[in-house]
C-alpha cells in the first residue's frame, strides 16, 4: 500500500516536471522573438536593443537555456510566476483573485454531473435494450455532442433574452449588495454557467456509468446473487457497487475536460474565473498570466488524478495487497 503510494507520487512528480518544462519551453519555442510576446503588441515594434536586453533579463530570458531554466525553477520555488502585462500585478495575485470562482463552478458541475450521470446511466443500464434506454442514450449523445459554448448561448437566449429570468453577466451584481442579498444575486448568476458546464459533462458520466453497469450485469456473481435468493434491491447493490469503480476514475480524470469546458463557458457568461482569465490573456497577449494559469490548472488536475489513484484501492479490494497466506 505504502510502496504503491510512493510509486504513484513519483509518477505524478514526473508529470509535474514535464508540465513545468513545457511551461518554460513554450514562449521560447514560439516563432519570433520572445520580446514580441512579452511586450504589448503596440510597444513591441519600437523597442531599442538595450531595452530588449533588459526585458529579456527581467523575464529570465537572458543567458544559456540551462541557466535560464535554473533561474526559472528557483523563481518558481519562491512562488514567483512573473508579472502580468495587462494588470501590472504579480501573476500569483491575479490567479488567486480568480481561482475561487472557478473552483465553485467546476466543483459544482463535477458534483452535479456525476450524480445525474450515474443515476441516469444506471437507470438506462437496468433497462438496456428497451425503448426508454434507446431514447435516453440517443438524447444524451446528442446533448453530449453539443459544444458547451453553443449550449451556453442557447441558454442565454432562452432564459435571459426571451424570458428575462436570469442575469447573464459576471458573477457578482454591479450594484451594492451585502449579506443574503449578495449570496442570492451571486447564486442567480451561477445558475446558467453551472447548468451549461454540467450539461457538457453529464453525458460522459452517463455513458461510462451505463457501459460499466451493463458490463457488470453480465458477470456471474450477479446471477449468483439472484440465485442466492437476494431481493432485486440487494442484487442491484451488488452490481452497482462494482460498476461505480470506473465512474470514480473517469470522473476525476475528466476534471481536465471540465476545466477546459470552464474556459469556454466562463467566456460565454463573462464569469470572472480562470477560464475567462485565459481567454482575456490570449486576447491581450498577457503571456505570463497564460503560463501561470496553465501551470496552476495542470497542478490542480494532476492533484485530482493523484487522489483518484490513491483512493482506488480503497474502493476495489482486488488492488489491495493480498493478505499473507
Amino acid at each position: 500500500m505504502r510502496r504503491r503510494g510512493v510509486r504513484i507520487a513519483l509518477q505524478y512528480a514526473g508529470v509535474l516536471f514535464v508540465a513545468i518544462v513545457l511551461n518554460f519551453a513554450l514562449p521560447r519555442l514560439a516563432p519570433g522573438d520572445a520580446v514580441d510576446y512579452l511586450l504589448p503588441p503596440e510597444a513591441a515594434g519600437e523597442v531599442t536593443a538595450a531595452e530588449r536586453e533588459s526585458v529579456l533579463a527581467q523575464y529570465g530570458l537572458g543567458g544559456s537555456p540551462v541557466t535560464q531554466f535554473g533561474s526559472y525553477l528557483s523563481r518558481l520555488a519562491e512562488g514567483d510566476l512573473g508579472v502580468s502585462i495587462r494588470y501590472g500585478q504579480p501573476v500569483t495575485e491575479v490567479l488567486t483573485e480568480r481561482i475561487g470562482w472557478t473552483l465553485l463552478l467546476v466543483g459544482g458541475a463535477l458534483a452535479l454531473s456525476t450524480l445525474l450521470g450515474v443515476l441516469l446511466g444506471f437507470f438506462a443500464a437496468w433497462r438496456r435494450g428497451s425503448k426508454s434506454d434507446t431514447t435516453s442514450l440517443t438524447g444524451v449523445m446528442v446533448l453530449d455532442a453539443m459544444p458547451p459554448f453553443f449550449v451556453g448561448l442557447l441558454l442565454i437566449l432562452v432564459f435571459s433574452v426571451s424570458l428575462g429570468w436570469l442575469p447573464i453577466f459576471g458573477a457578482l451584481p454591479a450594484t451594492e449588495a451585502s449579506g443574503l442579498a449578495l449570496v442570492f444575486e451571486a447564486g442567480q448568476r451561477l445558475i446558467l454557467p453551472l447548468v451549461t458546464l454540467t450539461l457538457g459533462f453529464v453525458g460522459t458520466v452517463y455513458l461510462i456509468a451505463r457501459a460499466s453497469l451493463v458490463g457488470e450485469l453480465q458477470e456471474d456473481y450477479v446471477l449468483m446473487a439472484e440465485a442466492k435468493g437476494l431481493s432485486p434491491r440487494q442484487v442491484r447493490r451488488h452490481a452497482q457497487r462494482n460498476a461505480l469503480l470506473p465512474v470514480v476514475t473517469i470522473t476525476l480524470v475528466g476534471l481536465g475536460t471540465l476545466i477546459g469546458g470552464a474556459a469556454v463557458v466562463e467566456t460565454v457568461f463573462s464569469y470572472p474565473g480562470l477560464g475567462r482569465l485565459i481567454y482575456e490573456s490570449v486576447l491581450a497577449r498577457d503571456y505570463p498570466v497564460l503560463q501561470g494559469a496553465f501551470l496552476l490548472l495542470a497542478v490542480g488536475v494532476l492533484l485530482c488524478n493523484f487522489v483518484a489513484d490513491l483512493l482506488y484501492p480503497l474502493l476495489d479490494p482486488r488492488l489491495r495487497r493480498p493478505v499473507a497466506q
Binding site: I259, G260, A263, L290, F294
Partner: peptide, 19 residues
C-alpha cells in the same frame, strides 16, 4: 500515461496561443 493525465484542453489553448 503521462500524456493521458495532462489537462489537454488547456494545453491546446496555451499551445495554440504560442505556436
Amino acid at each position: 500515461d503521462l500524456a493521458l493525465v495532462f489537462p489537454f484542453f488547456v494545453l491546446v489553448i496555451v499551445l495554440a496561443a504560442f505556436l
